[in-house]
Nucleic acid binder design. Structure first.
Lengths: 237, 237
DNA sequence: CGGCTGAAGTTGTCAGACAACTTTATAAGA
DNA sequence: TCTTATAAAGTTGTCTGACAACTTCAGCCG
């Protein structure tokens, strides 16, 4: 329960206060103990206490008012984090990929429903960029990512590209692994099939057909997911 | 660009370093300037610098190694945040609700695909809890939330309930507003229709029919979204 | 060439002090 | 008595100096 592992006293104080807040012992609006009280009750210096409070403030869990005190935020819900890779690696990545699938499928649907002309142009341009990169030889992971982002932006809802960028940074590093295991000829066929799926997604968006756009995106990402799942099973049965 | 508004010197340093990292001027793995360098270059005390670095560490942007220095994290993507309500209130909430819709629709699908027997029992139990709460008179917002969470947990993917809980804390406060504007009789009809939608979702999950589960969930949330959208337009045209 | 030692550099922690601001208590005035 | 001004105490923000713990690297010794 008490997670006070070794180095960094500030983390101990941080863990303690964070637990008090999340556990409800400190309700929203409540005032935290003063820095002096914390220094004496936890046996640390004021520097340590202040660093812990600074971290809490960075997470939006508390707000401080000079001359008055530090108070628990009205909505003490920390930001959304995803555990670092070394946790449950393979299975964890699959979980994140499923979350990404959910958001991208609906993004394709919203894009088909209400993308502006300019946004559609952007999506088509991104698709052409992939085509070009493929013809010029090497993989197009950057272009692929830009394509998906263009669709997210075509929803007109800024949260979609924002969240996708966030998820991408937690998934991308390993999807490059997958490509390198295939033989050159298999890889070529794989990339072409992927691109066909991309075209189908764009067709759905251009036709303003949300059902088709969603289905195409779901097929696209499900296939990617299945491939990764197979790879995960193969390395740990 | 330079966002160094008044109080809190630590925030100035924080903004500066954060911008340097996100802007690429400090690449992953790079070592940050030493605390001494920062104190002299920014004209602040070491206390301030340390608080700023503590905040960066809390966000996972840097890691510090005692005796060596502070380094930019390999994946310097901060956590996912959602701006506080007072920003673009109405439209912003709609954006978040759409994100929630995306995740919940797919969650219903995954739940239908692979929910364990125990998880299905939980979902049905949550549905019954809403029924009971409705019969006993007053609204069932807590039970409604528990129902949606049960579905998210039935996916077997912990990220779904986690992310939903995160989003919920940013949307919930205002959906209670909507209920209070209706007249008692309208409210009754509204709640019953909602509950019918809930039943349809559960039917899809129990029948292990992902397509139907998704469609039911999408209809359910789209209706809620449309209602809110109308309310938003009515108060600002 | 390899390993050891020591010095320099850096972060972690402590202590004390003052400034800036808020809150509360006190006193003065109407 | 109530209101207002003033003073006092309390709290966070910032600065300064110091030492401990650890890392890194150069130089020395074998």
């Amino acid at each position: 329960m008490a997670d006070k592992r070794s180095s960094n006293l500030a983390e101990k104080v941080l863990a303690r206060l964070g637990a008090d807040i999340r556990g409800g012992r400190l309700a929203p609006g409540d005032r935290l103990p003063t820095e002096q009280e914390l220094t004496s009750s936890m046996g640390v210096s004021r520097t340590v206490v202040r660093e812990a409070v600074a971290a809490l403030r960075a997470d939006g869990l508390v707000v401080t008012r000079r001359g008055s005190g530090a108070y628990v935020a009205e909505n003490p819900t920390g930001p959304f984090r995803i555990a670092a890779p070394p946790s449950g690696s393979l299975a964890a990545v699959l979980d994140v990929m499923e979350l990404r699938l959910a958001v991208e499928v609906e993004a394709a649907g919203f894009a088909a429903e209400r993308a502006s002309r300019k946004q559609v142009v952007q999506v088509r341009g991104a698709l052409r960029d992939i085509d070009r990169a493929l013809k010029s030889g090497d993989g197009a992971v950057a272009e692929d990512f830009a394509f998906h982002r263009a669709i997210a932006e075509a929803t007109g809802n800024a949260q979609f590209p924002r969240f996708l960028a966030f998820l991408g940074s937690h998934v991308i590093p390993r999807q490059s692994v997958r490509l390198s295991v295939d033989t050159p000829v298999e890889r070529r066929a794989y990339l072409e099939r992927i691109q066909n799926e991309h075209h189908r997604i764009v067709d759905g968006i251009v036709a303003a057909d949300p059902v088709e756009a969603r289905r195409a995106m779901r097929d696209h990402l499900t296939r990617s997911l299945e491939r990764y799942r197979k790879l995960a099973e193969g390395s740990k049965p």
